[in-house]
Amino acid sequence: MVSEALSFILQLLIFPGFLFIICLAFFSEWVLRKFVARIQNRMGPTYTGSGGILQPFADFIKLLGKEDIVPAFAERTYFTLTPLLCLTLPLTALFILPMTGHRALISFEGDLIFLAFIFTTLTIMVFLGGFLSGSVFSMVGGVRAATQLLGYEIPFLLALFGPAIPASSLSISKISTWQAQNNAWGLWTQPIGFGVLVICLLAELELLPFDIPEAETEIVAGWNVEFTGRRLALVRLGRDVELVLASTILADLYLGGPQQVWIIPPIIIFLAKMFACLLLIGYLKTLFARFRIDQVLSGMWKYVIPAAMIQFIILKLIW
């Protein structure tokens, strides 16, 4: 009993828990930065570590050492809470997603709903944090984040729950296991849903063409304009974890998640799938100009939501 508890704590803290995810987050940021740089014919980070692999970590450490400023007009509670939640919410979400084997660290029936809840909370935290920072730019950024949520939330949820229908379960671990066992990856059985989910994740992660809440040339840094020092460090780390979360969701819900192929352990297969999704996101992020907020809303309601619904209807007809 004691050893079981100890093992669980170790799993939670080290592998595949906290430490592993943080390292993975730093590594994914590096992969994304290098990849985008290559697409744009640039070098990307080069100095820290071999090929600049330690650059995200170095950025984090540097930000920790910077002066911590709370603006006079900011609401102190939310200003402190937002960076913390920005990191902890995606971390919590990653605990319920399977990475090393069939079962996630914490798995229960209905954790898919919990995941959806976490995503919405995250955006609301962004809105509150931005709105209560007391700067015009962060206020506009926060409002834009909330407005954008209105556009992408419905298709996002539809695409998230799509894979649950054939697997007839609301547990992410069960869905990915079902897909791996029946060789029925969501990518092949419901390609439209996959596309919709990728688009919505781009919007959720505030990447181009949906980086409206932090549009650099329009509103400086948007909702996180007032964060400095360790708060900004946490926000940025939270963004990296979110990036891992997004690619993990795609890998787990639409690519069958961790599965044993021949003698290759599931974790390797999972990482391969996850980084494939990461590169897809990175590739898409370089291809577009930024939309305007009204264009996002109308585009989402006109094209993306109907697409998600059609996918749902097709699913219902087949299963």
Binding site: I39, Q40, N41, P209, T217
Partner: peptide
């Protein structure tokens, strides 16, 4: 102009 509308890839290509 590409950078102003958030299209950094075009910005990099053109400046290259």
């Amino acid at each position: 102009a590409a950078h102003e509308i958030g299209f950094d890839t075009l910005f990099m290509y053109v400046w290259r």
